[in-house]
Write a protein that binds this DNA or RNA. Structure first.
Lengths: 202, 202
DNA sequence: GCTTAATTACACGGTACAGTGTAGTGTACA
DNA sequence: TGTACACTACACTGTACCGTGTAATTAAGC
């Protein structure tokens, strides 16, 4: 029961994870072999299996890592002293910034490629995405209480707003057809203007 | 050069296609074997290969079939004598009807599972979806010319409308988390009301 | 009933890959 | 310097699957 020797194994593990991310991103889950991952990682296949007991476990570790990164929720509280349009624009910008990161997009694609066959997982993923709604819901309630917007059903309004963002930016980008900057700008402005107009007080 | 004998082979071919659709829907492209398809079709694997020279060819035939079905474009012309809200609602309903068909959804999922790794194909698919925009663009121009709506940029407005529909209904349904009927109704009404309000004349 | 094409049953080659077993090499730490 | 542990090289098993070859069987049209 003396203190056992333990070498630092986290470096190799990280290298394998990085290699897995890259390989899965480029070829998807099914078309990535453990031999390939080992090669990219500069490790022997045996070592890969010593760290991750199966391909599925490795995949889950990759997605776990990804979720940790994605969990950087931005809180955007309602500011009674600032213009409304820029504040709404900030909500959109947070998403657009995410979408601009190619590594993020690659991982989302990998995840979707698998999740699309696993309705149960897919539903959980969608629900997680809805957590973002709450920040906007709070913002809307703030603006409504302040009398600068008329929001009858904040949840529905927020859902509509995020649906538009998803349909206009998120999904096209994931599918490899992101809107051109000029189009994106126009869509963003039209969304905000439309939203503010239809929720104008009086 | 006499008239050659030809037996009718279309029946078996159709059975194989049906089986392929079902198998691909349930397990995706990579996880569906030709043996399995042959078994489901009640045909020998050799016959499958006699009809479709490879798994890829068979897959493309399936998707081709699917596109033919999906091409039932609905023309919804602007009607100056009818209420605006129900007319806009008809645009949404066409999509919702599609989404309600589980076979359609299954095939979209299969296609996406493959396309998600093939940006080039994915882009073409997204562009095809945009063809639907034109009908709404024409409708908007009609309503604008009639003075019942104020539409500055019909293309952007239509894009925004369809983006919301996609983000609110299409993608959640494809991902296995369709909105509950009550939520769907509320979203649809909110969308139409918001759209009409923000495009009201004066 | 004869011919001919479609279909079947089934064996087989080739390949790719998940995962294991093992003997040996390197190396951090006591 | 020695020991325990991480790591490597590599052979190997088992499996799944694509695609082909072929001889036998079925059934349509003459």
């Amino acid at each position: 029961m003396s203190t056992r020797k333990k070498r630092d194994t986290s470096r190799k593990r990280a290298e394998i994870l990085d290699a897995a991310v890259q390989a899965f991103r480029e070829h998807g889950f099914d078309n990535t072999s453990m031999d390939r991952i080992a090669e990219v990682a500069g490790a022997s296949k045996r070592t890969v299996y010593n760290h991750f007991e199966s391909k599925e476990v490795l995949f889950e570790a990759v997605m776990e890592d990804f979720h940790r990164k994605a969990r950087e929720l931005k809180e955007i509280p309602y500011d009674p002293d600032a213009e409304l349009a820029p504040q709404l624009g900030a909500f959109v910008d947070v998403k657009l910034k995410m979408l601009a990161d190619p590594e993020w997009g690659g991982l989302v694609r990998v995840g979707l490629g698998v999740l699309i066959r696993e309705p149960a997982f897919a539903q959980r993923a969608m629900e997680r995405a809805e957590a973002d709604h709450n920040t906007l819901v709070e913002w809307l309630r703030g603006a409504d209480a302040d009398g600068r917007l008329r929001v009858e059903d904040a949840r529905t309004s927020a859902a509509l707003f995020w649906s538009t963002v998803a349909g206009a930016f998120f999904w096209p980008t994931i599918m490899g057809a992101p809107p051109k900057p000029a189009v994106a700008r126009r869509l963003k402005e039209a969304l905000i203007e439309s939203f503010l107009t239809s929720h104008a007080p009086h």
